[in-house]
Amino acid sequence: MSIVLGFVALMAVIAFAWLSRQGLADKPWLETGAVTRIPSPGGRPTGRVGLGVFLAVVGGLFALAGSAVVMRMGYADWFALRMPGVVWLGTALLALASLCLQSALMAARRGDARASRAAFGAGALATLAFLAAQILAWLRLAETGQGLAANPGASFFFLISGLHGLHILGGLVALARVAGRLGHGAPPRRAVPGLELCAVYWHFLLLVWLAMLALLSGWASDVAALCRAILT
């Protein structure tokens, strides 16, 4: 559970850093009228704050899944999964999608509608290709005797890649809404807030995927051993 404890500690630091700027030492019983020193709410777009909170929830979810992997890795029957090559291709596609959405955002900020639409389309396609690659990886694993229930590593791979894929699918719904705002004739700056949120979400899911992959493929087994040692 040390991964999730680390995650909660990070959240606590962020929360206390924010709270420390909110005048928690004030004496409201002595004060009437305006309080000018404390920033008013609403300084940041609501969508961005909402996404921040949601990413904390998603981060927690994968930190917990990662913690379960680390605990399970301590048992004698655990061995690292032999990843099919298509997993690496899929990872590259997700990185490409993340990059494309960032380019689309930057182009939209510049007001370059054409470049923004092209990068956006490439990002959406790369994301779909990533999902297809994940399904291929599942099939390849099943063919090579590493099916869902074959060994603990495979079970966790199916579980985590499935959960991750569902989050990507949810992101695609948001992406479809942004596509409407990037439609022909519309000024690209209208799509900037939505594109910004999508780009951040994609970067975050890429990071999550890289972390999970490092854990499941055995790259991070030393870190995992250290995590287990801390709590045992």
Binding site: A25, D26, K27, L30, E31, G33, A34, T36, R37
Partner: peptide
């Protein structure tokens, strides 16, 4: 401690 105002509306930022 936060600054306070005699005029109740002064300094309250716009929404």
């Amino acid at each position: 401690m936060s600054s306070t105002s005699e005029d109740p509306d002064s300094g309250i930022p716009p929404a």
